[in-house]
Design a protein around this nucleic acid. Structure first.
Lengths: 136, 136
DNA sequence: TTGACAATACGAAAGCCTTCGTATATCTTT
DNA sequence: AAAGATATACGAAGGCTTTCGTATTGTCAA
């Protein structure tokens, strides 16, 4: 029932990446991390994160002076959601097509290929075996 | 330099899907196809396709009264482009991660899985046939 | 020819995302 | 306590996408 998922925008996703990677942190930290690659004002990052708080994408603790933000949604959940959407719009719903292209485009190492083979085996056997979450 | 690839917007992508699927056709055809699921005015579709022509996403033949549009870019090219972008923004560049999630989320038929296995085999054996992809 | 219909061209509004400037409050250091 | 640095709040501008209304032009049949 929790219809939380809204589609984060590109800028929001960038911020979420930082929060996911480094855990809860201040606007300053997020901004400094981002400012390495981009060139954007501090208040821009601040504003975005405020909006994200309004949207419910992040939660913030306002006890301390510099508020501490943390992602509300799990990275995998967002990825699932975006992936589904992406498959629909760009691949006409064919996830398999996407997988094939992704495999072809990316030169995967043998370990990664092994992982995939293992996953395929699990799917073939158990029908739906997602018992444990394979690490990223 | 051919910097053809711009990222098509969502609406543009929908139109491209029609063009890819049915081949060159008129605005009317595209609109009727789209109007099945959406609810949008004819001139909206027209305008979008005109803009797409300006951007170089589609080409049009104006000899006949109702212009005939056709996609300039190949579906696979756009998919590649979008996929790359998507992997970067949503999966931090890890195509393998995306593949795993896509496989897990979609319950694939055995034939599809076989296809993937075949592709993996080809990759494993042939090493990297097309490895002219310099990483960024 | 004229009336009805269909197609294109074009301007402009509405909505969303991103960006920043500025005002205000709080902390720190001397 | 005062100055300077740092934080948040907030409004508003600029861009881009999507949408549509309206004008104009072309087509076909009676």
């Amino acid at each position: 029932m929790g219809k939380d998922h809204q589609k984060p925008t590109d800028a929001e996703l960038e911020i979420l990446q930082v929060l996911w990677q480094t855990g809860p942190c201040s606007v300053r930290q997020v901004h400094d991390t981002l400012a390495g690659g981009r060139d954007v004002g501090y208040t821009t990052t601040l504003k975005l994160m405020q909006i994200m708080a309004e949207k419910g994408l992040v939660r913030r603790n306002t006890d301390t002076r510099s508020h501490i933000y943390e992602a509300v949604v799990a990275e995998q959940d967002i990825q699932q959601h975006l992936l589904r959407r992406f498959v629909d719009t760009a691949f006409r719903g064919s996830a398999m097509n996407l997988v094939m292209q992704a495999l072809g485009q990316h030169n995967a190492g043998s370990e990664e290929l092994d992982e995939i083979k293992a996953l395929i085996q699990r799917i073939e056997q158990g029908g739906n075996a997602d018992s444990d979450n394979p690490p990223t």
